[in-house]
Simulated assay, not measured.
Amino acid sequence: MLTALQHEIVRMLARGASDRHIAHRLGLGLRTVQRHVSTIMQLLRVQSRFEAGVAVTRAGLLEELDAGARRSTDPTPDRPGGSGATT
């Protein structure tokens, strides 16, 4: 099972992002990203970054991860009457 952070990393990895780019985008250290990539590759039982990208794409996980990323960044819809304004 991948953590939320590993999901984000594998999504970027599948899109061809370098460790350095991933680290910059996520505000992480390069070594931290490298460790996560290594762990992800072990969990997916693959030998290369390319194979990891292929594995998540073939399993349909990339679309799931993208949808999850969109949901987590979408603003929470306003509730009716939640603005505090009175009429």
Score class of each variant (00 low, 15 high):
Arg35Leu: 11
Ala69Leu: 10
Thr39Asp: 13
Leu26His: 07
Gly60Asn: 10
Arg20His: 12
Leu44Asp: 03
Leu28Asp: 00
Ala52Thr: 05
Ser72Gln: 11
Gln42Asp: 08
Thr76Ser: 13
Pro75Lys: 14
Ile40Ser: 02
Arg70Ile: 09
Leu44His: 01
Asp74Trp: 12
Val54Lys: 14
Gln47Val: 10
Glu63His: 15
Leu43Gly: 03
Leu65Phe: 06
Val37Tyr: 05
Ser48Asn: 07
Gly60Thr: 12
Leu43Thr: 01
Phe50Cys: 04
Leu44Cys: 01
Leu61Ser: 04
Asp66Cys: 06
Val33Asp: 05
Val54Gly: 00
Ile40Asp: 00
Thr39Tyr: 09
Leu62Gly: 02
Asp19Gly: 06
Leu61Ala: 09
Gly27Tyr: 03
His36Ser: 10
Val37His: 04
Ala52Phe: 04
Arg58Pro: 06
Val56Leu: 11
Val46Glu: 08
Ser48Gln: 03
Leu26Ala: 04
Ile22Asp: 06
Thr32Val: 10
Ser38Tyr: 05
Thr73Lys: 07
Ala69Arg: 13
His21Val: 13
Ile22Val: 13
Leu65Glu: 02
His24Cys: 02
Leu65Asn: 00
Met41Ala: 06
Leu62Arg: 14
Val33Ile: 10
Gly53Gln: 00
Ala59Asn: 14
His24Asp: 08
Ser48Arg: 13
Gln42Asn: 05
Glu64Gln: 14
Ala23Leu: 10
Gly53Thr: 00
Arg20Asn: 13
Gly29Phe: 11
Arg20Val: 15
Pro75Arg: 14
Ile40Thr: 01
Glu63Asn: 10
Asp66Val: 12
Leu44Trp: 01
Thr73Gln: 13
Val33Arg: 00
Arg31His: 13
Thr76His: 14
Leu43Phe: 04
Gln34Gly: 04
Arg35Gln: 12
Val54Ala: 07
Pro75Leu: 15
Leu61His: 03
Gln34Thr: 07
Gly60Asp: 05
Val46Phe: 11
Leu30Tyr: 15
Thr32Gly: 04
Arg49Lys: 15
Leu61Phe: 08
Ile22Ala: 04
His36Val: 01
His24Met: 09
Arg71Val: 11
Asp74Asn: 11
Val33Met: 07
Val54Pro: 00
Arg70Lys: 11
Arg20Leu: 15
Arg45Leu: 12
Ala52Glu: 05
Gln42Ala: 10
Arg20Glu: 15
Arg49Gly: 03
Arg70Asp: 08
Glu64Tyr: 02
Arg35Glu: 12
Thr76Gly: 05
Val54His: 08
Val56Gly: 02
Leu65Arg: 00
Arg35Ser: 12
Gly29Ala: 06
Val54Met: 12
His36Gly: 06
Gly68Asp: 06
Val33Ala: 01
Arg70Ser: 11
Pro75Cys: 12
Leu61Asp: 14
Glu63Pro: 05
Gly29Ile: 06
Gln34Ile: 02
Thr73Glu: 08
Val33Gln: 03
Pro75Asp: 15
Val56Met: 06
Leu30Lys: 14
Ile40Gly: 00
Arg25Ile: 05
Asp19His: 05
Ser38Pro: 04
Asp74Gly: 03
Leu65Ala: 07
Val56Phe: 07
Ala69Tyr: 10
Ala59Cys: 09
Arg45Asn: 15
Thr57Phe: 11
Asp74Arg: 15
Ser72Leu: 03
Glu64Asn: 11
Asp19Ile: 02
Gly27Ala: 04
Ala55Asp: 08
His36Lys: 03
Ile40Trp: 03
Ala69Glu: 14
Thr32Ala: 09
Leu65Lys: 02
Ile40Glu: 01
Ala23Ser: 06
Arg25Thr: 14
Arg31Gly: 07
Arg45Gln: 15
